[in-house]
């Protein structure tokens, strides 16, 4: 058996502002193997997004989060890593795709410049070399005429196209783990399937592990090998996707499954 890429033990998280805060993540443990696709399913407020951000050590501005437990990436503890070393991991080894493509791109920078800057940060490429790679990446995520579009600003792109740009940013340095936090929730239904297919393809081509976070069981069917079901900051059930779909053990899982509209993804 290979060593897990990511191993999380007893992770807790609470907002630092109020001392008697309830834990939004309450001692969860899980692992992700290299190249593996794992789904995290739960309603909003179940702690799945906070879990994802704990791995990246990201907290919303103005509401600092306190984390406890251990998060080991390739055997290295992330929660106690110094800020500079954590910055070397973010975007380079662990990357993230966020929920809302409309608000996740810097409105005053061209989309190309927003891919250049992560490349230049982690790969040491010159600005010109980075731009060449940026154009390849835009092409990779399915943006037509990438050389011209690189100079456009975010408002000139549709929501689906912006999510493709954000995916290009996330995969730009070929991370070992890609975290996708509700990557299709803010998109039109027709675009959702395209984005999911793109994520699948990139995962295969780049050999990344994928942590796919969603409230929708419909999204993960056919996408991931294993599933963790989260509720109230805890993992209530886990297992291979097929087994979970076939025979959900926990009442909460059954309720979530019952709510899935029958859309076949990836078809």
């Amino acid at each position: 058996m290979t060593a897990p890429l990511l191993e999380v033990r007893n992770l807790t998280a609470h907002f630092a502002r109020d001392a008697a805060a309830r834990r939004v993540v309450d001692g969860i443990s899980f692992h992700i193997d290299p190249g593996e696709a794992v789904g995290f399913v739960g309603e909003s407020g179940s702690g799945k997004s906070v879990t994802a951000r704990a791995i990246m050590r990201l907290a919303p501005e103005g509401s600092p989060v306190r984390w406890g437990g251990t998060v080991r990436f390739r055997g290295e503890e992330l929660l106690t890593l110094d800020a500079a070393a954590m910055g070397d991991i973010r975007g380079r080894h662990i990357a993230m795709v966020f929920q809302d493509p409309m608000s996740s791109l810097n409105p005053v920078m061209s989309v190309g410049a927003q891919i250049d800057d992560i490349l230049m940060r982690h790969t040491g490429l010159s600005r010109r070399a980075a731009r060449r790679r940026t154009i390849e990446l835009l092409d990779l995520v399915g943006i037509r005429e990438p050389a011209q579009r690189a100079d456009d600003h975010p408002h000139q792109f549709s929501g689906g196209m912006r999510q493709r740009v954000l995916i290009a940013i996330a995969v730009s340095c070929q991370p070992a783990l890609l975290i996708a936090d509700e990557p299709t929730t803010a998109l039109d239904v027709t675009v959702q399937a395209q984005i999911l297919r793109l994520l699948m393809r990139l995962r295969r081509e780049l050999g990344m592990a994928l942590m796919l976070i969603t409230h929708d069981f419909g999204v993960i069917a056919g996408m991931v090998e294993r599933v963790y079901v989260m509720n109230g900051g805890a993992i209530v059930e886990t297992g291979p996707t097929d087994a979970l779909f076939a025979a959900p053990q926990h009442e909460y899982t059954r309720a979530l499954l019952a709510a899935v509209p029958r859309i076949e993804p990836g078809g």
């Binding site: 973010r90 975007g91 990357a95 966020f98 810097n106 992560i118 940013i169």
Partner: peptide, 14 residues
């Protein structure tokens, strides 16, 4: 500072 794109910038490791 509370905008999503700043969070994305942090996630890039900038």
């Amino acid at each position: 500072a509370s905008q999503d794109y700043v969070m994305v910038a942090k996630a890039k490791g900038l």
